[in-house]
Nucleic acid binder design. Structure first.
Lengths: 223, 223
DNA sequence: TAGATTGTTAATCGATTAACAATC
DNA sequence: TAGATTGTTAATCGATTAACAATC
């Protein structure tokens, strides 16, 4: 075949979200000096079904696994990173230089994932022209121009919920095609533009429900 | 029936995560002065299936909907907030007072969701005894005692990945039963303890994949 | 060779959607 | 009443899991 597999296959959303976990296990295996890792071992480490892991990995592996041995660790790491686009650094902008925005800018780990925040935007005058972790904060009025000029494709929203939609609109004007939204609001965007909600409220809901169910169980025992 | 419905029903993970979105739409409707909202209207706003919305809401609504009118807005808000535990403030601790940790501490919105961060912990000596947004940073050595004494049930982890597991272990020692994990690591905890991963790497994966697929489509047109 | 592991095809499971009856 | 909307039961869809064949 001419192309590597990673170009041909399409992973489901769920499978895609498991990839970072596979990478974590693989990196660990690499450090331990293993050359091959079996799907069974990965599944065990992550408490996942073995066949699930095998299928997920088969979809991105260029070499395939070797019976009796497993998958070649270094090669598989590279395949996944390739598939995930970790090797191509994508320039990104962030809007909302509050505490959360600043934290994301300072988070160096994102570089590992192929994301580089090259500029921040805010409406607050006191923030503008400041530098956060080497990244300049600019006025919102420059957003569209900046994005078009640098061909930015990813935007991060860390503004209060009521401001999020108008920020998203500007981003779309600037040609951005994928938005990472930390504001707890549903955004409306044209087809072709992806909104990935980082849904802190939903996560909190999971925590609360767990505690509630536990407490109810405890109460029902007492009854 | 003796108990309100919200105590009897169990929402799937997905349904639960939709609740904050329903709340958002309902609050908006409340501001607009509507007394009733139909499932169809909510579904439209959130681009969800109408029956899905109806089922989700039926599971938490104490009154049920009224044919021809819809659901009573204020009542439904209260039901959902009740179900989600927004009304009972849960004391929470946070470990890892770096930039992300500080951002979460300063984020006032969490109060709305029934979460109050009452203490932060860190190993860095320079951080200890500092106050962040009115929350004291303490030494890790006090974590277990503090949690047991105050009966803390929720812990937030914002430390580097390699430190996350040992932090989780301490939290479990301190009697914590739900962990919100921002470190990109799979944590191992006893049964009965929930780990909610806030999976930034997985979200980034979604963004990257979207851009990759778009670019591939564009290329295939040119070919 | 025998055994471990991959890869694939079929069965299961759970969530979403569709169809329809009930109600104000 | 007629029509809009809820609520429920059945059908569909997609992801996960199980069973089994292929391979080193």
């Amino acid at each position: 075949m001419a192309r590597p597999r990673s170009q041909d296959t399409y992973l489901t959303k769920q499978a895609l979200q498991r990839m970072p976990y596979y990478l974590q296990v693989l990196h660990q295996a690499e450090e331990e000096g293993r050359e091959f890792v079996s799907a069974a071992k990965i599944a065990q480490d992550l408490q996942l079904n073995e066949v699930l892991v095998r299928k997920d990995i088969a979809a991105v592996s260029s070499t395939g696994g070797r019976p009796k041995a497993g998958f070649p660790v270094r090669c598989l790491i590279s395949d996944i990173e390739q598939y995930m686009g970790y090797h191509t650094l994508k320039e990104t902008i962030l809007v909302g230089a509050g505490s959360l925005g600043q934290a994301l800018i300072k988070n160096r780990e994102f570089q590992m994932y192929g994301i580089s925040i090259v500029a921040a935007f805010d409406t607050k005058k006191s923030m503008i022209h400041k530098s956060i972790g080497g990244v300049e904060v600019m006025s919102m009025t420059h957003l569209v121009d900046f994005c078009l000029k640098r061909n930015i494709q990813i935007g991060i929203i860390t503004v209060p919920p009521e401001a999020a939609q108008s920020v998203a609109d500007r981003m779309v004007d600037g040609g951005i095609r994928a938005i990472w939204n930390f504001a707890m609001t549903k955004l409306t965007v044209p087809t072709g533009v992806l909104v990935q909600n980082e849904d802190l409220a939903s996560s909190l809901a999971m925590l609360s429900q767990h505690l509630r169910l536990e407490n109810e169980m405890r109460n029902s025992w007492i009854e």
